[in-house]
Amino acid sequence: MQPKFDRERHCSPVVCSLVAAALVTAKGLTKHFDDFVAVDGVDFEVREGEVFGFLGPNGAGKSSTMRMIGSVSPVTAGTLRVLGFDPSTEGRLLRARLGVVPQEDSLDLELTVEENLLIYGRYFDISRKDLAPRIDELLEFAQLTDRRKDRTEPLSGGMKRRLTIARGLINRPDLLLLDEPTTGLDPQARHILWDRLYRLKQDGVTQILTTHYMDEAEQLCDRLVIMDRGKIVAEGSPSGLIAEHAPREVLELRFPVGVQDGVVEQLEGVATRYEALADRVLLYTDDADASMRAITERGLAPEQTMIRRSTLEDVFLKLTGRTLVD
């Protein structure tokens, strides 16, 4: 098994604090499928111990990026280093240290839960003796201990997803790649998964995940990038991105049908910025109460008002003019 990059051993404290162990470094990373540009020269860095997210709508290039990191898709242009390896020439060594949870589960549905883990462990050449306790542990982690002898096919979507995550952990990876870990799950199943991923983070497992859901990104990610049409359009921590690109609060106003177009001009100045959507107006403001008072003073009477805090969705809307889930 490949020894992990050991900071204590390999460099002096000063240098190491500067290096801050980037596990993944991408520069100008590009992926073409024939003429189509799926990933268009992206730069990013993932540091040890963090959870790093790719947020973006369908077709943004999230999975294509993940697959290049996982060395299952050749890089078209740019440079990529993962755990110190070059994925194009040292793929085998790299994959031995990665855990992968693909967008689709890819379990062997005819096999039992336990056999899926056994086979995968053997692909990493972990001895059966070492695998036995590890499988017990992972089944516990995935809350599947009582289903271990059952065929995989009839498991629920959430169970299959947890099994896929457990499978990705069989080799105790240094880096876990999760492609849309909770898409298609009900809210309760999502919360269970979030809890499991949070525990992994506590154990120091570096994670890269993709998602369509801003609440998921806000919950799980230390840092994230927003991708759109193969490009990175913003980068930062969830709160940092919101602070940078959107005022603290959003005041949503609904006017009676036909009235909105006539009144939007009069909203000028009551907030930092406004966005007129088809069915409502969003006012971005640092003080929603003050903005509300200003609206009333101008004699405007919206049918409905709602105050909420700004989310990543607002950031995305501002940067791309589109919502996240197409």
């Binding site: 994959r95 031995a96 693909p102 589960d105 062997d108």
Partner: peptide, 14 residues
């Protein structure tokens, strides 16, 4: 259908 080849290729097995 099951895409298990894809899962296999994500491991050191090329």
């Amino acid at each position: 259908w099951t895409k298990t080849y894809e899962a296999t290729l994500a491991t050191p097995v090329g």
